[in-house]
Every structure is written in structure tokens, then in C-alpha cells.
Design a binder for these strands. Structure first.
Lengths: 190, 190
DNA sequence: ACAATATGCGGACCCCAGTCCGCTTGTCTA
DNA sequence: TAGACAAGCGGACTGGGGTCCGCATATTGT
């Protein structure tokens, strides 16, 4: 008989590994705040952190993973608010209200971190869909569209509108945040 | 007084330039049919065409331009059908019908050329929106949504759903073309 | 025919993401 | 405390997109 743990938690990270993860994140953040996304090359991050490039990749898999990690804290707040926060975002609200609250909150988040989001979504082709957080939003939107014809497809529709590249394009094209917001809300209403 | 032509047509392409454009396109097509998108590196294309790499870039601006040029003929057919073809796609149809006909036709097109479309849309960040053809579809969809609250935004919504990367992700996730089709049609109905 | 000039050409070069692999070091067990 | 071994480490290396610039040639006016 095999010896399968029912839930095998991933083996704890070694101490040096954890230290390096922190070093890399701090270095990346420093580079980003001083030079913008332009400055966020993997070589530069590794050098600034004083570690080898391989270490960066071992800890964060690829560049989108690294950038996503930079955004993680902020994103966690939003996720938490949705799972267990107060209405209208949290689980006590009505579905339509929760959908509206979600897109508003998410657009605020996009507004605050547009360039990092673009970087994390376009680092590799299809990177966006691989991000764990994408699954999270998809699942929750699917639930909030439970009444629709194909709830999962509706979830994808909304996420497609919240794509950072698209929004950056609209912004560059002169669209106001208000107009974008109104459009997305429309999609989610009813 | 300046000597301004009212509409300055772009100066005609030099003979050698035109020849090279054709050589490059043929070479690219050959590589693609024999080795798939994998084989479409700009170095390989240049070598196969017997021209320098600079020439490829001069003629097609960047890789997404080159790939878009490969798709151009097929895309032109669709465009033509929309501008001057018979109903339901052509200008004589009712708007809702035309929208439905458009998304059906476009999805057929995507189905036939998914990998090339992904390549052309993801070659550079934001490449998709820069493609001339994107403007074309956006303009026409905007007209077909003339009754909506923000027609242009609706156009963007539909195009976001027709994004090749998204569709490839759905396909890889096990979605049938039927299901995708139904979802997009729903978005366009009414 | 012949300059004069703009357009085009080639390919060496740069940058950056991501891989590979021989060496090091933390951790676990006895 | 020591030995065994997985995990981690660094940085040279690869592959591909895109740029640059000195040289070549098609085109146009005389």
C-alpha cells in the first residue's frame, strides 16, 4: 500500500529560500518605485537582490509570477473582502450588488496598479490565465452569475473587460475612468 | 505657398522592396505550413527568404505585422462581405442579425487560424490594438450597436471575447466551439 | 546617359526572458 | 555531532525580438 497523506501540504520552504524570496521582493519593489516597470528586468532584480538569476526563477517561476507576487498583498485584501467582508462586496449582499461592488473595487485596484498588472499579464503569452488569482476571480464571478445562462462564460466576459492591456489601451485612447467604469457596470447589472 | 497634395497617397513602393515583401511572405508561409508557428522566427524567415533581417522589419514593422500580413487575404474576404456582401452579414441585414452573422463568421475565422492569430496578437504587448484590422472591426461593431448605451464600449466587449488568447485558453480548458459560440452570440443578441 | 537623392538592404549587435548544471548548504535522522 | 540527501544556488549560456548604420541601388530630373 502506498503512503498517501490526504492533503500533502507543500514541504516547508528552506530558511535560505525564504530569505531570498524576501530579498528579491524588496529589490523588485525598490527598482519598481525608482524606475517603473522599465527597470524591472530579471537581471536587474537578481543583481539588486544580490542573488543569482536562477534563484529568482526558482522562487517565482517566471516574470509574471514575480510581478504577481508584488501585487499579492493588495490583491489579498480584495479577496478577503469578497470572501468574508461586509456587504455589498461580502457574502451577505445580493448577487447583483456584489457584482457591481466587485467591478468597482477591482477597477480601483486596476487604476492604482495599471502598469504592474499589464506587466504581470503580458510577461508570457497566456500568463494571465495561469495566475492563481485569475482562477479565484473566475470562480467567484461564476457564483455571482449563478442565474445566468452560462455563468462561467459570463465570468469570463467580465474578466475580459477587466484585462489590464485592454484598459490601458482605452486609457491611452482618451477614455475616462468614469466611462470605463460605466461600461463594465452595465455588463454586470441586471 | 506650400505644394500640398490634398491626399498624399504614400509614395509607391520601390520595385525591389515589393519583390522582397513577396519573398518574405512566401518564405513565412512555407515555414508556417511545414513547422507551425514555432518555426516562424524572424531570423528563420529572413534566411528562408534570402534577405536580411532588417528587411523583414522594414517591410512589416514587427512580428505581429508580419503574421497579420499572412492572415490578410482571409481577413479581407470577411471585411468585404461585411461592407458589401449579401445579408445577413452585408449592409442590407438588420443590425442584430448582422451582429450575429459577424460573430459566427469571425469565430469560423478564428477556428481556422487560431495559432496565427495568437501569434499576431501577442507578439508585442498591446499589439492587437495597433493592428489596422482591429480598428476596422471596432468601427463596424460600433455602428452595429448604434442603439446601445455606449456603442463603442459594446464593440470593445465583443472584441474582448473574440481575443485569440482567451479563446485558446478556453479551448485548452476543454470548451467546445459550440459553447464558446453560444456565449458570444448571447452577448450580441437583442 | 548621368547625377543626385531618397529608399532600401544586410547582418552584426543589443537586450531580455528563461534554462541548465555543477557546486553548496540547510535539514532531518541516527 | 555526523553523515546523507534533498533543496537551493549562481551565473554562463541560449534563443528570439528588435535596432542601427554604413553601403547599395532604384527612381527622378536634366
Amino acid at each position: 500500500m502506498e503512503d498517501l497523506p490526504l492533503l500533502d501540504s507543500p514541504p516547508r520552504e528552506r530558511a535560505d529560500a525564504a530569505r531570498n524570496r524576501a530579498l528579491v521582493l524588496q529589490a523588485a519593489w525598490r527598482l519598481y518605485t525608482s524606475g517603473g516597470v522599465e527597470a524591472l528586468t530579471t537581471d536587474a532584480v537578481a543583481q539588486e537582490a544580490g542573488v543569482g538569476k536562477g534563484t529568482v526563477y526558482r522562487r517565482f517561476r517566471d516574470k509574471s509570477g514575480l510581478v504577481a507576487a508584488l501585487l499579492d498583498d493588495r490583491e489579498k485584501e480584495l479577496q478577503l473582502a469578497m470572501i468574508s467582508g461586509p456587504a455589498p462586496l461580502g457574502p451577505d449582499g445580493a448577487r447583483t450588488e456584489r457584482r457591481l461592488a466587485f467591478v468597482r473595487a477591482y477597477l480601483d485596484y486596476v487604476e492604482a496598479h495599471l502598469d504592474l498588472l499589464v506587466a504581470s499579464e503580458t510577461a508570457a503569452p497566456g500568463a494571465r490565465y495561469r495566475l492563481g488569482v485569475y482562477q479565484f476571480w473566475k470562480t467567484h464571478l461564476t457564483l455571482l452569475f449563478a442565474d445566468a445562462y452560462d455563468p462561467e462564460f459570463r465570468a469570463y466576459t467580465v474578466l475580459a473587460l477587466l484585462d489590464a492591456s485592454l484598459i490601458r489601451h482605452l486609457r491611452a485612447d482618451g477614455w475616462s475612468w468614469e466611462r470605463i467604469r460605466a461600461g463594465v457596470e452595465q455588463e454586470v447589472r441586471w
